[in-house]
């Protein structure tokens, strides 16, 4: 067990956990932030995606000891992120979600994509979102929503 100082959604916090504990479980179980989801634990589905220093990161694979001083952003703060807010709004407007379990990760991935590539082509959307699984199959609406968000962010 060791202490780690983390900056999560702009707030300083400290946790005492085993160094190997993935950030996902620190968020979910120690900080009680359950918006970030466990889907596979091997970085193959994207449900656990957070932003680490602004970069979309699979939190299920990242030991807390490797986070360092990089700020962490999760789905819970996207409403106050200028791109995040737009993405959430288009997601609601396009009625994207079904079961919704993967959608935190989809939205976090989409926000990171739009911050890197503000006007993604269809191929870039597919590349950017291509590692996120949605078993309900909301892919068509995700494509449309991202295109709409890009337009609105102009």
């Amino acid at each position: 067990m060791a202490n780690y100082a983390l900056t999560v959604n702009g707030r300083q916090t400290e946790v005492n956990v085993d160094p190997g504990t993935p950030l996902l479980w620190v968020l979910r179980e120690h900080l009680k932030m359950t918006g970030t989801k466990y889907g596979c634990g091997i970085g193959a589905c994207g449900a656990c995606t957070v932003h680490l220093g602004g970069v979309a990161t699979r939190s299920c694979l990242l030991p807390v000891s490797l986070v360092g001083s990089r700020p962490i952003a999760t789905i819970e703060t996207m409403a106050s992120d200028p791109v995040g807010r737009v993405v959430q709004d288009v997601w609601v407007a396009a009625d994207v979600v079904q079961c919704g379990y993967c959608q935190s990760g989809q939205i976090m991935t989409a926000v990171a994509l739009l911050k890197t590539v503000p006007k993604p082509t269809d191929a870039q959307i597919e590349q950017g979102m291509g590692g996120n699984i949605c078993r309900c199959g909301t892919y068509v609406r995700i494509r449309q929503a991202i295109a709409r968000a890009a337009q609105q962010l102009g």
């Binding site: 359950t34 918006g35 959430q88 997601w91 609601v92 919704g100």
Partner: peptide
């Protein structure tokens, strides 16, 4: 009609079974 559960599924606030938390909960 848009889904009633959409917003809560987009901001991470909707609790699924796996998110259940209780005082003294063990896994």
């Amino acid at each position: 009609v848009r889904r009633l559960d959409s917003r809560a599924k987009c901001d991470g606030s909707l609790k699924f079974g796996i998110d259940v938390d209780l005082p003294g909960l063990k896994v």
